[in-house]
Computed example of a mutant assay.
Amino acid sequence: MTPLRLVFMGTPDFAVPSLAALIEAGHQVVCAYSQPPRPAGRGQQVQKSPVHRFAEEHGIPVRTPKSLRNAEAQAEFADLKADVAVVAAYGLILPQPILDAPRLGCVNVHGSLLPRWRGAAPIQRSILAGDAETGITIMQMDIGLDTGAMLSKEAVAITPATTASSLHDELAALGARMIAPALEGLAAGTLAAVPQPEEGVTYAAKLTREDGRLDWTQPAAYVERQVRALTPWPGCWFDAANGERIKVLAAESATGGGTPGTLLDERLTVACADGAVRLVKVQRPGKAPVDGAAFLRGFALAVGQPVSAPVSTEAVAD
């Protein structure tokens, strides 16, 4: 196909394979847009995003506006005279003038099978909900939140071993394989955009640290999915009776039962509302991760005791 003049808009690791695929396909990436550099890591040093770094390594100019809502930013975008903009986990809302500027519009690489899991955290929400599959949707963007017509979709299975990290990498690679053929079909007029069905819409709300609190009154299957879905971000945890916040890095379903939250054995198996979950890898503050048995050897917690401090239900004064 004739190479397209395109703008790429993305920020995290998820977007990098798609940008690499577009370069490999021979398209002219005239500019990359990414979130501004921000403090990150233990030292809180200001760092460029993965897309920003990758684009610069390949000689692509990078822009990092804080907003695209002002006329100056919109004029600068229009002056690029792009055939199409490809968007993958960019993180900024695209106003209508931006959507309208490229000849073929703006195309999004979205990490779910739309209309299921529109929004910010589709990878984690699909695992957390116990979905059997998810995938990538290549979508023609409109002004709504992931509401645009679909150009192509491909599914992947979610297995009992699927984690947020493994699914992230699988979907990032799948999006990279799908984006160039989708652009070819769009440019040639051979790929028709299909409106999303009105039924089956769900929203993948942005994750917060509180989402990672483990609730032993949930079924064990849910707690196990929670650990797979929310590691490494926002991370799963519980507050022990001594006040320490214990991170849970890996868990598995286990046999047994009892009062939710009770320690059932010396391998750190905890009773849930339905069944039990074994905490395979945990981490105390300032310590290295260890397995459940090693954790208990260094922690004053006996079988039959609750592993967590009671959750405060006191009302907060206005």
Rank of each mutant, 00 (worst) to 15 (best):
T162H: 04
E210G: 08
Q44N: 13
Q28G: 14
M141Q: 06
I98R: 00
L94H: 01
A188K: 10
H58Y: 09
E224F: 02
V290G: 14
A121C: 07
I143M: 08
V201E: 06
D274Q: 15
G148K: 08
A180R: 01
A89Q: 00
V87H: 00
Q45I: 06
V277H: 10
E252T: 11
C236S: 15
T190D: 02
A164D: 06
G304H: 05
F299S: 11
T137Y: 02
R225L: 09
C106V: 07
A251Q: 09
V280E: 13
A240K: 02
M178D: 00
V282N: 02
R63G: 01
L4W: 02
R42G: 11
V223A: 15
F238A: 15
D100N: 13
G111V: 02
E199S: 15
A155D: 04
V311D: 08
A55D: 00
K206V: 06
A271D: 04
A302Q: 11
Q283E: 14
A288G: 05
A221C: 04
E154D: 12
G91C: 06
A101E: 01
G243D: 06
A271T: 06
Q74H: 10
P122E: 10
G10V: 01
E198P: 03
V194E: 15
L268W: 01
A250K: 09
L174Y: 09
C106T: 06
A120L: 10
V87Y: 00
E76H: 09
L191I: 03
L186A: 04
L301C: 10
K247T: 05
V227L: 11
Q305W: 02
E57Q: 14
G105H: 09
G41N: 11
A193T: 04
A193M: 05
V223E: 02
G243R: 07
P50T: 07
R225E: 05
P102H: 08
T313R: 12
T147N: 12
R278T: 09
S308R: 08
G144M: 08
A300M: 05
V7T: 00
A309R: 08
E252H: 13
H52Y: 13
W237M: 08
E56V: 04
E76S: 13
A220C: 09
T262Y: 05
M141N: 03
G304R: 07
Q44K: 15
A180S: 06
M139E: 00
M139C: 02
P234T: 02
